[in-house]
Amino acid sequence: MVEERADRVHARLHRPAVRNAIDATMVDELHAVCAHLEAHPKVLILSGTPASEAPGGKGIFASGADIAQLRERRRDDALAGINSAVFDRIARLPMPVIAALEGYALGGGAELAYAADFRIGTPSLRVGNPETGLGIMAAAGATWRLRELVGEPLAKEVLLAGKVLTGEQCLAAGLVTELVEPEALLDAAQALADRIAAQDPLAVRISKAVFHTPREVHPLIDTLAQSMLFESQAKFDRMQAFLDRKKK
């Protein structure tokens, strides 16, 4: 389910009967969203099924890959990187990605959340990677993204010992930036999107790209990127507006 505004797209994972398990169809739909946002850069908000629409009245982001499909996959499927390819594409989108997380974000659902630039959660949030309990590993970004996000000791507890993080633990670890009540989750995500939209879009795009470049190319890449922005009309307009406000 996709809703689009002038400056953002909201994509909802919505397979409530199977707890939003990520199947091949959902992967294809996420690729389609990425293709659109690569051509028309906008902020992306990812969310799941809210409590009001979920079985049992409990919201859910994504419970992971569809195990029935996953069980049938073999070596060549793993080498194709089905989930890792789309999650990496999401992480590389030109504009920031916000994950609004409620309920379960497990396995592939957790790895999808790790690929976002921002994560906002609810107290009911539960994040984990139970893959080793199923005889496989979290191979769609968790082994390196989660370590970067929360540090090695906690990442190993999640990846090697099956620890499932509560919303409060996610907040304490910095995995989410904010905890809100379920009814306020999308409003909080939209408010963050509003703050991003208030910035210069080109400056945001370049800052995100530079942020994710390897350490060894800094500070050269920073200097080159800044030289581009120094020539943008938005830089002159926004700085002049700032100076005009100071005169009042």
Rank of each mutant, 00 (worst) to 15 (best):
A91K: 10
C34I: 12
R245H: 04
K208L: 13
A140S: 14
K163W: 03
C170W: 03
R215W: 14
R15V: 06
Q190M: 11
L46I: 04
Q190F: 13
R8Y: 08
R75N: 05
S232E: 13
H218M: 15
D237E: 11
S47V: 09
G133I: 02
G108Y: 11
G162D: 08
Q240D: 15
H14Q: 04
L46M: 00
H10L: 14
F87A: 04
L154G: 04
R75A: 14
T166E: 00
K42Q: 06
P182A: 13
R15F: 05
M95I: 02
V86R: 00
G103R: 09
A225S: 15
D7F: 11
G121S: 03
Q240L: 15
E152Y: 05
I221D: 10
H10Y: 05
P41W: 05
G103C: 04
Q199N: 12
R92K: 14
D200G: 08
D23Q: 04
V86M: 02
D222P: 08
E152M: 06
A155N: 06
R71T: 08
L160Y: 12
L70D: 11
E157Q: 11
S227E: 13
R92C: 14
G135A: 04
A99S: 09
A198S: 08
R245A: 08
E157N: 03
L70W: 06
F87Q: 01
R73Y: 04
L220I: 15
L37Q: 04
I60M: 14
L149Y: 12
H10Q: 09
L70F: 15
V18I: 15
I60W: 05
G135D: 03
S84D: 11
A21R: 10
G109F: 05
A188C: 08
D200L: 00
I67F: 10
A51V: 03
K156F: 09
K58G: 06
L165V: 03
A11F: 10
L220F: 14
S63H: 10
A11Q: 01
R74E: 09
A91E: 14
G135K: 03
F87N: 01
A172S: 15
A32Q: 15
V18N: 12
P182L: 08
G121I: 00
A24M: 05
Q233K: 13
K163N: 05
E29A: 11
R12K: 05
D66V: 03
M1Q: 06
A191Q: 09
H14P: 03
G135H: 01
P130L: 11
V33A: 12
G121P: 00
D187S: 11
T166L: 02
A193T: 02
V217E: 14
G135M: 00
L37F: 08
G133L: 02
A189W: 01
V18C: 12
F118K: 04
D76S: 13
R126N: 02
A197W: 05
K248T: 06
I120S: 01
A17N: 04
A191P: 00
N129T: 01
V86D: 02
R75I: 07
I82G: 03
K163T: 06
L46R: 00
H36E: 14
A116L: 07
E111C: 05
V204H: 00
T49A: 08
K246V: 12
V43S: 02
D244Q: 13
A139V: 12
L202M: 09
R238T: 09
P219Q: 04
P96R: 05
L106K: 09
A184T: 07
L202C: 03
Q233I: 15
V204I: 11
E102M: 13
A225Q: 10
S124H: 10
E102A: 13
G64F: 01
G141L: 02
G167H: 07
T143S: 08
